[in-house]
Design a protein around this nucleic acid. Structure first.
Lengths: 240, 240
DNA sequence: TGTCAACGATCTGTATACTAGTTACGAAAA
DNA sequence: TTTTCGTAACTAGTATACAGATCGTTGACA
C-alpha cells in the first residue's frame, strides 16, 4: 500500500528491536533519511509510529533517541504479561481453529541449541510468533495489538544479549505445556500453564538481574526513567 | 510543546468520542483542514495517531472515515476490560497514594440525575477519570495506556446515546464499592468488586442490545466488520 | 441500448521550502 | 579568569508544491 513509509517503519522497528540501533542513541530526521534513503516526511511518519509504540522518544526541536531500556520498563512489561497472557491462553483454548492449533504445536516445539547465538535469535522470533498467535486466536483484535506491542518491547531486552538463552530447555518445555493445553481445549489448564510460564520467566529474569547487580554491571540504562526526563548524555548527532 | 498538532489531535479526538463526527462519515485531509483551520501536515499527523488508536480508518489514496461502531468492537472492548480492570484495581489497592485514594472516592460518588442528558455526559467523563485514575495508580505506564485507550473507544458508544444512563444508580454503587476496597487496600476485594462491575456492565449492555434487536433497530453500524473491509456507503467528501 | 476504455476530478503520498525553537560557542565585559 | 549575553548552527514544525493512485463519468463503439 504505502510504498515508502511501511517498509521504512518495518526496517526501523526491526533495527531497534534487534538492537542494531543502540538504545539511548540519538538521531535527527535527516540522519535517518540518509541511513534509510528516504526523505523527511516518511521518516517522520515512521518515527511518530515508533514513538507511539514506545521504541523511540521525541525531543521537540532537538531530535530523537532510541528509547533506552530500563529495569522499570522490563518490570512493567512482565507485569502486563502476567495480566493478559493467562487470559489470552484461556480464550485461545476456546476459540482457536485447527490450523492455529497445529501452528502453535509447531512453534512451541522449535528445537534450539543452547549457546548458539543465531539459534537463540531464531528462538526469540518463534517465541514472539507463538505468543502473538495465541493472542490472534482469541479473535480479539485489541488484545492481539496489546500482546504484540508488549512482546516487541520485550524482544529488545532479549536481543540485548541478556543470557536468557541458558534457560532454553525450560522455556521450550513450558511452551509445549501451554500449547498442549490449548490444543486439548482445556481452558483452565491453559490459563494455569500460561500463568506459570510468565511467573517462571519473571523469576528467571529476577535471578539474572540480581546476579548482574551483584557483579556491579550497569544493567540497562541507569539514566532512564518513567517521568519523561531525557538522559543528558550528549547527542551523537550533535557531536558529529 | 507542539503548538498545532497536539490541540488539533485533542479536539479531533473529543469530537469523535462525543460523536460530533458521526461514525462512518468520510473526510479528506483538506476537509479537516478547513474545519479545524490547519494545513494538511498537522491534520495528517493527528489522523495517523487517531488511526493507531482505532478512532479513524485510513483508506489509502482515498481518504478517511470516522471508525464505525460495531457490536463486535463493543464486545472486544468489554472483554478487554474484564481482563485488565480487575488486575488494575488490585494493583491500585497496593500502590495508590493518598491523594489518588481521595480523588477516587470523589469521582466514584458523583451524584447524577437519571434522564438529565448533560448530567449523563458529565458522568461519562467522571467514569473515564475514575477508571484511568485507578490504572494510573498501578504505576504501570503500559497498563495505563491500554486502559485509557479502551475507555476512549468505549465512550463513543456511551455518547452515541445508548440508554446506559438508566442504570446510573447501580453504576455509582458499584464504583463506590471498588473505590472503598482500594481505599481499604484490600487487594482481593478490589479485584472482585472490579470484576463484578465489569460483569454487571456486560450483562446490562447485553440486555440493551437484545431489546434493541427485538425491536428491529439497526444497532450501530451493520456494515462494519473486523476484517478491514470498507463499508461501501458513498463518501460524503466525494458527493459534495 | 449496453459495455468498455480513456479521461479527468479528487484524493493521498512524498519531497522540499520555509518558519521557528533550542542550544552550543565564542566574544566581550566584569 | 570567569561570567554573561548574543549569535550562528542545527533541529523539528509547518506549509505547500508536485507526483501518482483511484474511481466516477462520459463518450465511442458494438
Amino acid at each position: 500500500m504505502e510504498s515508502i513509509v511501511e517498509p521504512l517503519y518495518r526496517k526501523l522497528r526491526q533495527d531497534i528491536v534487534e538492537c542494531e540501533l543502540t538504545p539511548g542513541r540519538s538521531f535527527s530526521e535527516a540522519e535517518f533519511g540518509r541511513l534509510y534513503s528516504a526523505s523527511r516526511t516518511p521518516v517522520r511518519e515512521a518515527c511518530r509510529r515508533l514513538e507511539h509504540e514506545g521504541l523511540i522518544r521525541i525531543i521537540p526541536f532537538r531530535g530523537y533517541i532510541i528509547a533506552p531500556l530500563s529495569v522499570a520498563e522490563f518490570h512493567d512489561l512482565e507485569e502486563m504479561q502476567l495480566i493478559f497472557e493467562p487470559e489470552a491462553a484461556a480464550l485461545a483454548a476456546e476459540r482457536a481453529n485447527s490450523e492455529e492449533l497445529e501452528e502453535m504445536k509447531n512453534l512451541a516445539t522449535y528445537e534450539y541449541r543452547v549457546g548458539d547465538r543465531s539459534s537463540y535469535r531464531e528462538f526469540i522470533q518463534k517465541n514472539y510468533q507463538l505468543h502473538t498467535l495465541i493472542a490472534q486466536s482469541t479473535r480479539n483484535k485489541r488484545l492481539y495489538d496489546v500482546v504484540s506491542n508488549i512482546h516487541i518491547r520485550l524482544m529488545r531486552f532479549f536481543y540485548l544479549g541478556l543470557p536468557f538463552d541458558s534457560y532454553g530447555p525450560a522455556l521450550v518445555a513450558e511452551h509445549i505445556r501451554i500449547a498442549d493445553a490449548i490444543y486439548a481445549r482445556d481452558v483452565e489448564e491453559a490459563r494455569c500453564r500460561a500463568r506459570e510460564h510468565i511467573r517462571m520467566a519473571m523469576d528467571r529474569s529476577a535471578t539474572l538481574l540480581m546476579s548482574a547487580i551483584r557483579f556491579g554491571e550497569a544493567v540497562f540504562d541507569s539514566s532512564s526513567s518513567l517521568d519523561g526526563t531525557i538522559p543528558n548524555t550528549r547527542s551523537r548527532a550533535r557531536r558529529i
